[in-house]
């Protein structure tokens, strides 16, 4: 699947590797989780109260429609959180959690 977001400026910093639902994705130091995931995927997450995929909306920390789970069971707002090497992002709730939690 091609990404949704396009990097218009060639990233110069060192690449970092993150996992998105277990699959490896290359991102760049300083990028947001939102950019890293959407450069490789169509969407960020599933809506809590439906089957819709969501890919964020306001891109400035106001709409809260880009929250994703991390494998350590924490949740982050993808548009304002910076990627780190080895970060493991889940587009759905981790096992044992309900996505409405």
């Amino acid at each position: 699947m091609n990404g949704r977001v396009v990097r218009a400026v060639v990233p110069s910093g060192p690449p970092v590797r993150i996992l998105v639902d277990g699959g490896e994705v290359t991102a760049y130091t300083g990028e947001s989780v939102l950019v890293a995931v959407l450069a490789a995927r169509n969407a960020l997450r599933q809506h809590e109260f439906g089957d819709e995929a969501r890919a964020g909306f306001c891109l400035m920390g106001a709409c809260q429609d880009c929250w994703v789970w991390l494998a350590d069971h924490s949740r982050v707002r993808a548009c304002t959180t910076v990627v780190s090497d080895g970060m493991s992002v889940l587009t759905g709730a981790p096992p044992g959690f309900d996505r409405r939690d």
Partner: peptide, 14 residues
């Protein structure tokens, strides 16, 4: 709410 629809200001911020 479809993926790919964003706010105008957000598109600029990105």
């Amino acid at each position: 709410t479809l993926p790919g629809v964003f706010t105008l200001g957000g598109a600029q911020v990105l």
